[in-house]
Amino acid sequence: MRRLLPLLALAGCSGAQTPLDPWGVQAGHIATLSHVLFWGGGALFLVTMGFLALAILAPAGLRRAMGSHGFLIGAGIAFPVTVLTALLVYSLGVSRALTRPLSEAPLRIEIIGRQYWWEMRYPDLGEGAVTANALHLPAGREVELNLTSGDVIHSVWVPNLHGKMDMIPGRVNRQRLRADRTGTLRGQCTEFCGAQHALMAFDVVVQEPAEFEAWIARQRAPVPEPRTPEERRGMQVFGEAGCGACHAVRGTPWSARIAPDLSRVGSRATLAAGAIPNTHGNLAGWIAAPQDIKPGNAMPAYARSLEGSDLLALATWLGSLR
């Protein structure tokens, strides 16, 4: 068991949600600051413990010297003031570096926090570039996140890319970042916002620029026509059940903005803001009884109003929207 403890500690230094595995410039500054403060604090602790040991175990002459006026002034006032001032100046320099722009024209992305999901918009890339609970970024390009809230105060945090930033109703906070590695990360709400605060996450997908452009093109394009009788029935059920009163599906008559945009929901890795994996069974279960999965969310249950075959057909059509 003792041999496993170091491995468990090292496991927290990498992964899809850790500030100690920076994927970009800003996260690199934060990680460096963390290491400086950690190792610096550790060194100061060892020095303090060394003085304590000397005060207890050293010969009487040395203990008397350590109690002199000059030693107390030097070790008790001058030394900590010097060290803390240096750390303050360094920390302020890191803070300045975090806000320094890396380019003249970053890609703007609007993120709106809601109970309990995320809406992402790409206004620089044309109308219709909207998704939910999945932030796609082009690798190597600086982006500016315009952060706000549609209801209560939220806070967004992607540890591998930047620090936390509050999302306040009626106010837009801006955060610039750049991802330099491709892959999938995880973002999280870090401001208590209600009963399902813990289940308010999103995927961050960092793509090569060409792959990102192809993804944006798919987002803006109308959804494909249903290919099978079951998919056609599912689309019909979507309209008959009133789902379009809250959700948008691009290329159809449904364009509401109350709930997540479902235009490409089949391509998302999770449902309900990271609560469950996006599978056919989970999608049908979410439609049937969302309060059993994520109590307190705004999605109504359809278990009693839809037949089982209609639920499965609806899940099949939504799953085909890729």
Rank of each mutant, 00 (worst) to 15 (best):
L5I: 13
V89Q: 01
T270V: 06
W117V: 00
T184A: 12
R227S: 11
A27Q: 05
P290R: 07
S149N: 05
G74S: 11
A55E: 13
R100H: 14
I293D: 08
Y116Q: 02
E230C: 00
V156R: 05
V130S: 05
A198S: 15
V143C: 13
Y116L: 03
W117I: 00
I73A: 14
A53K: 13
G42A: 12
L306C: 01
A259W: 09
G140Y: 10
G140M: 09
W157V: 00
A275L: 08
P123R: 04
P222G: 02
A65T: 10
F212R: 00
G50W: 14
R181M: 13
P138S: 05
V265S: 04
I30L: 15
G281W: 09
G41M: 12
L10T: 11
H280L: 13
L147M: 12
L145Y: 03
T279C: 06
C13I: 13
G12A: 12
A303I: 12
G281V: 08
R171D: 04
R121D: 01
L161M: 09
M235I: 00
A27N: 08
G187F: 10
M167G: 11
S14G: 14
W117A: 03
G40T: 10
A273Q: 02
L4H: 07
L306E: 01
L137M: 10
K294V: 14
Q236T: 13
L84Y: 03
V36F: 09
L62C: 05
A298R: 09
G42D: 08
D203Y: 00
I276F: 10
R322H: 01
K294L: 15
G308Q: 09
T316H: 02
G67N: 05
R3E: 12
D151S: 07
L135T: 04
L5S: 07
L199Y: 13
W286S: 11
E110T: 14
P290V: 12
L46S: 08
T32R: 14
A31R: 15
N278Y: 02
G40H: 10
Q219Y: 01
C193M: 05
S91W: 09
G281H: 09
G61N: 12
A97G: 14
P300V: 10
G274K: 08
G285P: 07
L312S: 13
P59G: 02
C246T: 02
Y302G: 05
W39M: 13
R64M: 11
A198N: 15
L283A: 13
R232C: 01
V143M: 07
D166P: 15
E230D: 04
V81L: 14
G239R: 07
W215V: 05
L54D: 11
V204C: 04
L57P: 02
F79S: 06
R171V: 08
L46Q: 07
A313L: 03
R322F: 00
Q188P: 01
P19I: 11
A289V: 12
V83P: 01
R100M: 10
G50V: 04
L321A: 06
G319V: 00
I73E: 00
A129R: 02
F71V: 14
A210C: 00
A241F: 07
A272K: 08
L135Q: 06
G93F: 04
G251V: 05
D166T: 15
I258N: 13
L62P: 10
R181V: 08
G244R: 03
G113I: 09
L102C: 14
A269L: 06
G42P: 10
L57D: 09
C246V: 02
A259L: 08
A16E: 15
